[in-house]
Each structure stands twice: as C-alpha cells, then as structure tokens.
C-alpha cells in the first residue's frame, strides 16, 4: 500500500522506474482557482497516484473533495496549476490531444447532442476521436448491437428515455475504443436499475482489459467495483490501496468505516497543525510586545 501525504508525497521510486508502462501516472498535481468570494481555492493540493493496466481505480471522496477537478485535469478539460499527468506516456500539458485520444470520459455533465440520432452520435465521436475512418461503420455497428441500441439507433437523442440515453452515452465513451476510461460519478441521478446496469458495464469493460478510473462518493459502489481505491479529502489523497490493504491498515472492515477513519485522522492532523500555528503566532506576538 502506498500511503500518500500531501506535504511529502511518497510516490516511490520503484513506481517511477516502471512508469513507462503505466497507463495513468499523476505526479504533484495541484489546482488552484481564484474565486471572487473566497479568494484562492486549492481544489487539488498536490496529489500523486497511478493506475495499473486493466484495473478499476477508484477515487473515493465526499462532495467537494477534489475528485471531479482531478479527473477534469486528467481529461485536459482543466490545466494543472502544478504537476503533470501522463496518460499512455503523453503529458496532459504537452500533448493534450494525444491524451484525449487515449481516453473515454463519462460524467453527468457530458451530455449528448439532442438533435443527432444515436447512430450519428456514435459515428461522430468515433470519427472525431480518430478511429480509422474505414472502420467507423463496423465499430458503430458493434456498439449498437452490444448495448442494445438497434431498435432506436435512428431516433433523435432528445426523443430517448433516460435509460436509452445512458446506453448511448456509454457507447459514445467507447466509440473510439480508448484503452482508458474515466467515469466521474457516473451513477449520479440514475435510478437503481440503470445504476446497476452501469456498474455491470464498468465491470465488463475491466474484464476486457480496459483501465478504468472511477470516482464516487458512494461507498458500496467503490467496494463492489474497485481493484484499488484512493481516498481523497480536501484536495489531498489520504491513502491508496486495495480494499484488503485498507482493512489491514485501519483494522476496520467496511469501506465506510475505513473512509471515516482516514478523514477523521486527516481532520485531526489539520486541526493540530492549525492550533500549533496559532500558538506560534501568539508567542511571536507576545515576544514582539516585550
């Protein structure tokens, strides 16, 4: 298990040495926003992690923990303030187009074009993500069959039910057959049956050899799906490991308890740090007074 702290990320040299084969490698990733009301906001505070080929890597965190910002940086929608990400060896800073070619990005905010049909949607996304032009039709045909889209393939997306749209959305993410897939809180807003179907799809994709990055705040989903889990809180990764490793580390059984364990530790450490700083400032103030 790699335990990463924010102040000194222990992204070990062994991992770095074998990094050429890692599908996703994140180093010192930091994102700072400027907000009119709050000033500088450190949404992601310098994180490191990697994904192994053919695994489901889960980013587990509460709302506002920095999951979406991290995944947006991975998919080049946002540019890192510091640090870098390598996807299939390509840096998000240096070669964002190559990164996007290797990725399929799925989230609640990546909607479909409502006035295109399901088939047109898949053809467009396969083509624009540079799937070989002469094989686009065949690929789209396969996806239509696989996801049971045949009956409504020529219907406009805005006429489809939410379940049908979800199928087209997943097929859209896979249209160019990317080796890495990012699912950012994919089950948000879905009913139970659609959420279960989606979870099954994700598992199938892993079994086909895809590397999946999956963010969620739902513990049961992470427990069922993820081969390795990173717990993220306040823009910092508190720990990374398999579920068994996390259980061993904390002595807790359920992921919910494990999560609370790390978050409480982190908050206690933060409180301690703040109190120490406050004390130092008071002492300095008293010293200056003399």
């Amino acid at each position: 298990m790699t335990l990463e702290s924010t102040s000194s990320p222990t992204y070990d040299t062994a991992t770095r040495a074998g990094s050429a084969d890692l599908p996703v490698r994140v180093e010192g990733l930091r994102k700072t926003f400027y907000d009119e009301g709050r000033g500088e906001v450190h949404a992601v505070g310098g994180i490191d992690f990697h994904c192994n080929r053919g695994e489901i890597f889960g980013l587990l965190g509460a709302n506002g923990a920095g999951k979406t910002t991290t995944l947006r940086m991975l998919s080049t929608i946002l540019e890192p303030s510091e640090g870098d990400v390598w996807v299939e060896g390509n840096s998000v800073r240096e070669a964002p187009e190559a990164v996007r070619r290797s990725l399929g990005f799925f989230s609640a905010s990546t909607a479909l074009y409502p006035r295109l049909t399901a088939r047109e949607t898949l053809e467009f996304f396969a083509g624009i993500n540079r799937y070989p032009a002469d094989r686009v039709k065949q690929r789209v045909g396969e996806l239509i069959e696989r996801f049971g889209i045949t009956a409504f393939q020529d219907a406009r997306v805005d006429k489809l039910s939410s379940g049908m749209k979800q199928k087209v959305s997943i097929a859209r993410t896979l249209a160019h057959d990317p080796p890495i897939l990012i699912f950012d809180e994919p089950t948000v807003g879905l009913d139970v049956l659609n959420a279960l179907a989606l979870v099954d799809n994700i598992r199938e994709l892993r079994d086909e050899g895809k590397t999946l990055l999956f963010s969620t705040h739902i513990m049961s989903e992470a427990e069922k799906l993820c081969d390795r889990i990173a717990i993220i809180h306040g823009g910092k990764i508190l720990t990374t490991g398999t579920l068994d490793e996390l259980r061993q580390e904390t002595g807790e059984h359920y992921l919910e308890e494990i999560f609370v364990h790390y978050v409480k530790d982190a908050e206690a450490a933060t409180r301690e740090l703040l109190e120490e700083r406050e004390q130092r400032e008071l002492e300095q103030f008293a010293g200056d007074g003399k």
Partner: peptide, 12 residues
Amino acid sequence: RSTWETLMTVSA
C-alpha cells in the same frame, strides 16, 4: 445542453 464538456473531451 451540457454538451460543451463532451466536446472538450474529443481529441480534435
């Protein structure tokens, strides 16, 4: 229509 983010993830 929330398609902007979808568009930003294409490799063009």
